[in-house]
Simulated assay, not measured.
Amino acid sequence: MSKHTGVKTLMCGECGFRTANRSNLSRHIRTHTGEKPYKCDQCDYSTTHKSALNRHMAKHTGNKPYICDECGYRTASRSHLSEHMRTHTGERPYKCDQCDFSASHKGNLKKHKAKHTGNKPYMCDECGYRTADKSYLTRHMRTHTGMKPYKCDQCDYSAARKVSLDHHLTKHTGEKPFMCEQCEYRTTNKYYLSEHMRTHAGEKPYKCDQCDYSASHKGNLDKHMAKHTGEKPYMCDECGYRTADRSHLTRHMRTHTGMKPYKCDQCDYSAAHKVSLDHHLTKHIGEKPFMCEQCEYRTSNRSSLTVHMRTHTGMKPYKCDQCDYSASCKGNLVKHMYKHNGEKPYMCGECGFRTARMSHLTVHIRKHTGEKPYKCDECDYSAAQKFHLDRHVAKHNGE
């Protein structure tokens, strides 16, 4: 009867969670006790929910009986298919009762509601990071432990997040099941498609509650909010560099390790950043689909075109909050801010040289390694810096 009356008579003695369903309470209690009674008989996986075990078993059998009639997407879970269908229908059945926010997934609504209450019950004992979502805390803890529990069964790749592994696996299969109906864009990730669709709609659903900033991506809003709070929970153990963005820390760590995980499949080029590899690949295909309507400038990159257009409009949207400096590129503002705080987060592990710019560190490292990546295609000259190659090439051209 409690389902009809809305009364939630059953309560957790640990945290006050209430429910009308005894089985829901039993499952919830396991979040406190850590009990995972459902065991996989083919590996060491265990879980608190039987439905989660059923989904897991599909990884062993490869069975994906649920198929999307629109695009051919297949999954082992009926609920995943229901969620996927909303990318086609645009349906957002989960409504916030305090604002006009709506979501296609119940979990997204739950996270959103925490913004109204301000409640962040989950805290990291290592650094004080707090969050409204238990799964976020679990992921955050891996930045301290270095744990990467999600393993690829086709290579030695491992990831701290399941979504990263799912994305990686598509490199082996080449599968891109999510397709935009307004252009030819395809992607391996449902979330990427949702973000892409906003480029057509101009939609920016993520609003800052402290200023008029809005964003098309939640990640961008999270980064923006750090400007208000000053919070930088991610720290480099090598040099003390701190950042509000986990991906920035991951990229920063490569300045110490020298790791360049993004490999070109057409030459021996490798890069520390995916955007650098994407830019490099256009040299092989020569494709520059983004064109300026006011001049003959063309580029392989949408963001480069956006920055270029500001040379025509004079727009400088990135403002310094300590002086009247403004910039057309966010990177230029970041570099400028180092002048105020004196911060030099990039350090050479060989000699202790420090700099405010990663590109300066990259060039400096070549003094130790002897690397000269800029090659002349008319002779055997090579250089550590591009402007040296440009100066050399001018000699061939008689300039």
Rank of each mutant, 00 (worst) to 15 (best):
K3A: 15
E238L: 07
T187H: 09
V7G: 13
C329I: 06
H217I: 13
K36L: 06
N397P: 02
R22F: 14
N108C: 05
K190L: 09
C99T: 00
R92I: 06
R198V: 01
C12L: 10
P317H: 01
S135N: 15
R27S: 12
F178N: 12
E378H: 01
T145F: 04
L277E: 09
E126Q: 13
H196L: 08
T229C: 03
T362R: 11
H308T: 05
S359E: 13
A114C: 13
K330M: 01
M315G: 13
D278H: 15
G342D: 02
G258D: 02
S82W: 14
L109V: 13
D380P: 04
V334T: 12
R298A: 02
I285V: 14
Y136I: 15
I365C: 09
Q385H: 12
D133L: 11
T313P: 11
C379F: 00
T243P: 05
K288C: 04
F290H: 04
K335I: 02
S79M: 06
T31F: 06
K36R: 05
P289W: 02
Q266F: 10
H84T: 02
R186K: 11
D222C: 08
T5S: 11
A201T: 12
N108F: 07
G13F: 06
G219I: 02
T131P: 07
R310S: 08
E203M: 10
A58T: 15
R242M: 00
T33D: 01
H168W: 04
I365S: 11
T355A: 06
P93F: 12
R22M: 15
Y325I: 05
T5G: 00
C239W: 03
D245Y: 10
T61I: 03
T31S: 14
H60K: 05
Q182C: 06
E184A: 14
Y346E: 02
G240M: 00
P345V: 01
H200C: 06
T61Y: 03
K263F: 07
T61P: 10
L81E: 05
P65D: 07
T188R: 13
K204S: 05
S300K: 11
T19I: 10
G370Q: 08
H88I: 03
E126H: 15
K113Y: 10
G219P: 09
D377G: 02
S300R: 08
M253R: 01
A76P: 11
V363Y: 07
P345K: 01
L165K: 01
G34H: 04
N63G: 12
C15G: 03
E35V: 09
D222L: 14
G370L: 00
G230M: 00
S300T: 13
T282P: 10
C40T: 09
T87Q: 03
Q42N: 12
Y136Q: 14
G16P: 02
A215R: 11
G128P: 10
G349L: 00
H396C: 05
M253L: 07
K283F: 09
Y73C: 07
H116K: 09
H80G: 15
V307S: 07
R310N: 01
N332V: 08
K207D: 00
M147Q: 08
Q154A: 09
